[in-house]
Simulated assay, not measured.
Amino acid sequence: MLDIVIEARQAAIAPGMEVRRILPFRLRRMVGPFIFMDHAGPVDVQPSQAKSMDVLPHPHIGLSTVSYLFGGNVMHRDSLGVEQIIRPGEVNWMTAGRGIAHSERFEDPAALAGGNLEMIQTWVALPEKDEEAMPAFNNYKPDVLPIFTDTGVWMRLIAGNAYGLNSSVKTHSPLFYLHVVLEKGARFGLPKEHSERGFYIVKGNIEVAGRAYVAGQMLVFTKGVDPLIIATEPTTLMMLGGEPLGERHIWWNFVSSRKERIEEAKADWKAGRILLPPSDNHEFVPLPEDKSRPASSPPPQALS
């Protein structure tokens, strides 16, 4: 059966950048190992306003950030010294592990032309054994990601395994992450390989069991249920899920299985023990001062 419908909420991650936040949700913190999901754009601003959208250097621990674009491009810089432009169809997979800082800059005026910039950001929590791993970064081009087509259906497997396909993107636990495009009238189902499964409607409308659902909603299903998804107009979905990892605490940009590790990360960022990107170290996002919230209830996060 349908477990829950999550409505995306508006959130601001930078002065000029608002997003629709899907995860975490108070009644559903995670879907498999996915603990965070933001949908940014389409962004329609003047190129002169691009700098106001920049996400300044900020830290992460205990997770992997996953950036996926539908349009435009973004410059990623991190404390490993990586500088990478991410373009549509590519996957930026950054594993924070014990601690990393990165920025996202909108430096190409053409990327904002005509409301072209649109992206999905997710965080994947790490298994306990990998929470303190060395930070790492990988960029995967579209030609290494499996694609499946059928009548009215186009699908790219971003990460993990689904429908008998396997992605070369390195992950730390069993999961799936898919970009699916459906023509009007197309029918599709969720992969059966994983315990927890859901999908977010990026655009379009669908029906499941005779009920209509619209863009901005995420549907999460209980184990063993195989819903038939019918597109009632051209529709784009992001499907995700996998095996649960157990309880995770999230505060700002920090994720951990241990509350005390969140407190350590706060102190490390304030003390400068998490290094800034070497080519983007003149400004950063300060630690939010919000003593009223426990470590399991986050203030607004950065985009990734």
Rank of each mutant, 00 (worst) to 15 (best):
A186L: 08
Y140W: 08
P142K: 12
P174T: 10
P127F: 05
W123N: 04
I100Y: 03
A113D: 11
G164C: 06
L175E: 07
T95D: 07
G152D: 06
E104N: 12
E118F: 00
F148T: 13
E107T: 15
E183A: 12
D143G: 12
T171H: 14
K170H: 13
K141G: 10
R156P: 01
T122D: 03
W154N: 14
L178T: 03
H102S: 07
K184R: 14
L165K: 06
A162L: 06
E107C: 14
N166K: 12
V169M: 12
A101F: 03
H102W: 03
S173K: 10
H102G: 07
S168N: 14
R105G: 07
I100K: 04
K184I: 07
K141T: 10
K184Q: 14
W154G: 13
F137G: 02
L175S: 07
V144H: 10
N116G: 12
Q84P: 04
K141M: 11
G81P: 01
A110H: 10
N92S: 12
N116Q: 14
T122I: 06
D130C: 14
L175H: 09
G114Y: 05
R187N: 04
G114S: 12
L145N: 10
P109C: 13
S168E: 15
A111Y: 07
G97Y: 03
A125F: 01
F188L: 09
V153T: 05
G115F: 12
T95C: 07
P127H: 08
P146F: 01
L157W: 01
P88E: 09
Q84C: 10
W93N: 05
M134W: 02
Y177R: 02
L145C: 09
E128K: 11
I86N: 05
V91C: 05
A136L: 05
E131L: 08
T95I: 01
G189Q: 09
D78E: 09
N139C: 08
L190S: 10
V153F: 01
R156M: 13
M94N: 00
A162Y: 02
I147M: 15
H179F: 04
T151Y: 04
S103E: 08
R187M: 09
P146I: 03
A111V: 13
Q121A: 09
N138V: 00
R77V: 08
F148M: 15
A110E: 13
R87A: 11
M134R: 11
G72D: 06
A110I: 11
Y163E: 01
H76P: 08
A111E: 05
H179C: 03
D78H: 06
E90C: 12
V91P: 04
Y177T: 00
P146S: 06
G99H: 02
I85W: 13
S167A: 15
N138I: 00
I158M: 13
G99S: 04
S173I: 00
W154M: 13
L190P: 00
L165Y: 11
N92Y: 02
A186W: 06
I85K: 06
E83Y: 01
P135G: 05
L112N: 05
L175P: 02
V169C: 11
E107W: 11
A186I: 02
E83A: 09
Q121E: 14
L117M: 15
E118I: 05
M134Y: 07
E107R: 14
T151H: 10
I120T: 06
W123M: 05
E118Q: 15
I147V: 15
L178H: 00
V180G: 01
L175G: 06
V124H: 01
L157A: 01
Y177P: 01
